[in-house]
Amino acid sequence: MTKRNIEIPTNDGRAPAGLFVPQGGSRRGVVLFMDAFGPRPALDGMAERLASSGYAVLVPDLFYRQGAYGPFDAKTGFAQEESAAKIRSMMAATTQAMTQADTGAFLDALGNEGVERFGIVGYCMGGARALNAAAAHPDRVAAAASFHGGNLASEASDSPHRVAATIKARVYVGMAGVDRSFPPEQSAILAQALREAEVDHLIENYVGMAHGWAVPDHGVYDEAGAERHWTRLLTLFDESLA
């Protein structure tokens, strides 16, 4: 497996990204959407694990329009007033529409590596973006996964449940057992939207897991829950990107 740091041209500039490619390359590729703390060694390790399973993996910096920053500490980022305000500001300034547009360039970057089948996975804020990206690129994205993603069926105009009808990908949603950003009523709305749209999907409740459990540098990281997440994620991609 090799890692290269690249810059991807987009309509709004150049997005830095880590590109992880297994030995000999791969026709199967995954875009890994970061959580709110930015690209960092913890996400690199997750990308390396995906690459070791035979996938070319791209980890783009979704906050690239904001200039230089962090990355933030996943354990303290929201606990400290200054960093919390900065993170929230960057999240608000990086809209779902921006990420949907950028996704075309991200998929092209993987395509330049010989990738022909594409999946997307997102964590925390990246979860909703993964589903919206699948809706924006239905003929390219074959599988999309969200883990502890928030606001997947909110009242916002860009909530993913509103575009379920345009999703052609298989969808997996792994939700934290108790998560204020994705309460049971939102889960029910999302399930109904996906079912009515005839999207092949699974929404799974990780009982006892807290928001952020799957990412190793989070304070609430849970090893058993993370391994369960890897089993589900690799099964989704192995079946959908074959």
Rank of each mutant, 00 (worst) to 15 (best):
R162C: 02
S89T: 11
A15V: 13
A42S: 11
R232S: 08
K86N: 13
A176H: 01
A85Q: 13
R228W: 05
V215A: 05
R14Q: 04
Q80N: 13
I189W: 02
A224Q: 09
G150A: 02
A214V: 10
G225E: 05
D139G: 03
V141G: 10
N151R: 15
G38D: 09
G24D: 14
H201I: 07
P160A: 07
A97I: 01
T94G: 03
N5L: 14
A109H: 13
H161K: 11
I87W: 07
A214P: 00
A176Q: 04
Q80F: 10
P60M: 02
F182T: 08
G111S: 15
A74P: 09
P9H: 12
Q186Y: 03
T103A: 11
N132C: 12
D35V: 04
P138R: 13
V115P: 00
A97F: 11
A47I: 14
G122Y: 05
Y123W: 09
P160T: 01
L62G: 08
A164D: 15
L202T: 15
R49L: 07
A226E: 08
L241Q: 01
E198G: 00
E227W: 02
P60Y: 06
M98P: 04
E198D: 08
P138E: 13
V171G: 00
I189M: 12
A145D: 00
Y64F: 13
Y64W: 09
T94D: 04
L190K: 00
R170G: 01
T231G: 08
L241T: 07
V207R: 12
D158A: 03
N11I: 14
G212K: 06
Q96Y: 10
M46F: 02
E81W: 00
G29H: 10
L131D: 00
S83P: 05
